[in-house]
Nucleic acid binder design. Structure first.
Lengths: 338, 338
DNA sequence: CTGTTAGCGCGTTCAC
DNA sequence: GTGAACGCGCTAACAG
């Protein structure tokens, strides 16, 4: 391992000169700066990040802390895209990514201490909840943080927060469904999170624009990516005096699962019954018929979140909430009743 | 931030005693050891990993270096499962995961130096190729490495290597297809990688056991997860004088894409034509009809690889190649010709 | 402009 | 058994 000491000896200068040269210090004349750097590359020098981090009290590393269910873990369909967006942005700025596990430390103070002990420059929090002491205290701490797709409405005010335009996404989807003549629609909302409440708003806004009153029968509780409940819910809906002509599922997995269940009951999707999803996963586009859904560009969400975090680390001010646009994907799973 | 200095002051001892106590040094009497630790927890002490790493010349961190295509990136359908397996195993042993990008350093020596500069304990290499100088030199370096699902046959001999039982997986699948009376089968092999060659072996073994000779017409070149070529390939196959009754695709995405293409041409999957996949992704189980495929337990592969790496770091010897069993998933996409 | 020096927090050798 | 002291490699304050 070659250190700045070796370069200093080779160049006949002191270590501080080397250190300055490598940092492009304006104190040094251009000539020595170039000379030192030339020696460094010739010797194959690479800065010891650990020593540098210890000295500076900060590292070129960002932590990614995910609060996904244990069941899904990293296999959550949106996780890989978010991570990729984060990685592209951070790597471009010479930052590394440390994958954090919230299981390692039991209480919030311990978590924050252990983050300090790693000299992380900042932390990206995925799907955190303010109900969690860990998230709440972490946001209040001196460690720069950005939240991605959290659970509580208050997050939009308290901290930097990046998410999709859930309200608009669901508004667009509902409008599309209404344009096909459906009026008896049921939205199987997912768990009571911020994103869900936003989608409900968008759903209601589209209905109201058409003069259709929003009543309780148009909602049914459901859970994101929880496939085992889908069958029971569908049966409850079909048992109604006036079964819905269109069902909006919390996500594309649930929607595609519904395809199979409805088919088994003799329905033809997009003809006798209509189905919509949310998230815009590949699975919906490989399904037959292609699913009408709303695409969330989670890569862009991750990239944006990383970008905001870097700005926060640099001390630049930045608006609190960033919305990444969703896009309506029109498939053939909604029948035309007009 | 509380340091060992603070604990020393509080306990009326020296920093070296604290350091020893926290490391459970046998030099210390049990009593002081317990006392010091009690103070440490009371003050909320957390060891500074950076300083510790600098001193020891090693950190509790494992790098994960992925050589996936740029196009797929982390969104490769198998990546999340592998990563999750790795994370579970490493977190259980108090190791952290650093996501490495091979774009950051241009040549191999630079990459290795930068890994040293981070004091990583070891590196897990995903889908590496020995053709790459980076991979070849990294394996030969003093940094402990384990390969996951690489491209070259030589890998099985050169280094620790973890992969699925590709040969057996394809053997099982082919046997299942043969048992349904198919003899005119075409295997759309993926790119010419180690895993592909293993699967070809398994395919041939199953055929030979039934006395069916393996000839060139039973193979057709294809690419993993490359959906835009699927249509053209299918049309070539259907244009044969004797079109195959069953097509085995390189992966489940290609297989499910084929569903749509074949349907458009008037075929009913599992009735007029048979389709099989590989990987055992959820998508195949949501498709109609359910896809017959081979499941790779990539979570177990990741876990095993992490386990082997930890043993290597500890200096324990370990057999060179580890195979994680595949499992045949029988759907309804293969018609019964008997 | 450049060199000397003092730590960052921890682990470890060497004395006592 | 325990403490003093040094150094891992780098940065920055202070001299000159």
């Amino acid at each position: 391992m070659v250190t700045i000491k070796d370069i200093a000896r080779e160049g006949g200068v002191s270590v501080s000169t080397v250190s300055r040269a490598l940092a492009d210090s304006p104190l040094l004349p251009q000539a020595t700066c170039v000379k030192i750097k030339e020696i460094a590359t010739r010797l194959g020098y690479v800065k010891n990040e650990v020593a540098s981090s210890l000295k500076r009290g900060a590292s070129q590393t960002i932590g990614v802390l995910s609060f996904l269910d244990d069941a899904l873990g990293f296999s959550h369909p949106l996780f890989a895209d978010i991570l990729e967006g984060i990685a592209k942005q951070l790597n471009a700025c010479d930052y590394e990514i440390l994958l954090l596990s919230d299981h390692l430390s039991e209480d919030a103070d311990q978590l924050i201490s252990s983050l300090h002990a790693k000299n992380l420059s900042g932390v990206l929090i995925l799907w955190g909840s303010l109900q969690s002491q860990k998230v709440a205290k972490l946001i209040e701490s001196d460690i720069p943080t950005v939240l991605i797709d959290g659970f509580d409405d208050e997050m939009t005010a308290m901290t930097n927060f990046v998410t999709s335009t859930n309200e608009i996404g669901m508004y667009d989807l509902t409008k599309e469904i209404l344009s096909k003549g459906h009026t008896n629609i049921v939205y199987l909302c997912g768990n009571d999170y911020y994103v869900t409440r936003e989608r409900i708003k968008g759903f209601c806004r589209a209905l109201q624009e058409q003069g259709i009153p929003c009543n309780d029968s148009m909602f049914h509780p459901a859970e994101y990516y929880h496939l085992s409940n889908v069958k029971e819910i569908i049966e409850q809906l079909l048992a109604r005096k006036n079964p819905p002509t269109c069902m909006i599922f919390p996500d594309d997995y649930c929607a595609v699962t519904a395809y199979g269940i409805l088919r088994d009951k003799g329905y033809t999707i997009g003809k006798d019954i209509s189905v919509a999803g949310f998230d815009g996963l590949g699975i919906g586009q490989y399904a037959q018929p292609r699913l009408t859904t709303v695409n969330q560009d989670m890569g862009a969400v991750g990239k944006r979140a990383a970008d905001v975090l870097l700005q926060k680390i640099r001390g630049d001010v930045e608006s609190n909430v960033q919305f990444v646009p969703t896009k309506l994907i029109i498939g053939e799973s909604i029948c035309d009743l007009t």
